[in-house]
Write a protein that binds this DNA or RNA. Structure first.
Ligand SMILES: [Mn+2]
Ligand SMILES: [Mn+2]
Ligand SMILES: [Zn+2]
Ligand SMILES: [Zn+2]
Lengths: 142, 142
DNA sequence: CAACAGTTTAGAATAATTATAATGTATAAT
DNA sequence: ATTATACATTATAATTATTCTAAACTGTTG
């Protein structure tokens, strides 16, 4: 979702009614310099803290799912406790800080291209993504 | 956990009492040629289907967690719906079949070594793992 | 054989997510 | 503009995976 765009028009364009909840969420999610990685809870918290809004939990779920379906959010699997979402919907890699539980993008060009020597017969590769877990030196790996 | 080992002795050795539930689970998990990737539910199902046993769900969770803590099982993050476990506890890569939801190991030597050009200041790299999503050609990527 | 700590278990509790169904709103049709 | 309709929001209930609890049970030690 382009940062410099009219969310009302953009939403209509992609077939979603521009409700005030959706526009608010667009502003929160897409009006950013950098990629935003978040959980539903992060989002609900930001809505009440940063903006002074109240959007019901169900709507936050609905909207995130709608944006994901339209290709403007991507689900990132880090662990099974919570679902992480990413405003960077391209195939890319991540650093995951085991201490702060923070995700940081690592783009294709931050890694030498990955060359697979193995493949699965009859199957096509849909994505190749790297997860780099990091922590302070004095940290036992999970 | 070595395939050719006395699980009773082995369990005692690592500080876990060799209960019949734990020994049964060892047989189910570690008496295998190949790496085993599973969810708790897979395991519960196999216990009642393949073996004719009944181990309570709480015990399955307890035991899997105990084995994980001792370093004989590893948690694999694929999606946030279910937790996957792996009898291959080394740092390694995976193919994930989006259709069958099956995990297949891809060892270090199936991939050219990964060279990171980016790093996080003050943080140490704990692991670098690749997830390769695959599907039949006629499949829309998730 | 005690005695004790560790273990299993059914069931309750929790937490994330999804479903439901009533109310509200954007938009299309009149 | 008014009305009709499909789409959205919402509170709340339901579901699902997982963890907790506390009582009964079992392996180990002396
Ligand atoms: Mn977990
Ligand atoms: Mn999911
Ligand atoms: Zn990202
Ligand atoms: Zn594996």
């Amino acid at each position: 979702m382009p940062k410099n765009c009219n969310f009302v028009d953009k939403l209509r364009e992609i077939g979603l009614r521009p409700t005030k909840q959706r526009v608010k969420l667009c502003e929160l999610l897409f009006l950013r310099e950098k990629t935003f990685h978040f959980t539903i809870n992060d989002l609900v918290k930001k809505i009440s803290d940063e903006m002074n809004e109240k959007i019901s939990l169900a709507t936050v779920y609905n909207t995130v799912h709608a944006f994901q379906k339209k290709g403007y959010l991507k689900e990132i699997a880090i662990n099974s406790d919570k679902t992480y979402y990413d405003t960077n919907t391209s195939i890319h890699h991540h650093f995951y800080d085991e201490e702060t539980h923070e995700l940081i993008d690592c783009n294709q060009n931050d890694i030498d291209s990955i060359n697979l020597k193995k493949n699965i017969p009859g199957k096509k590769i849909k994505s190749v993504e790297v997860l780099i877990k990091v922590a302070s030196d004095n940290q036992n790996q999970n």
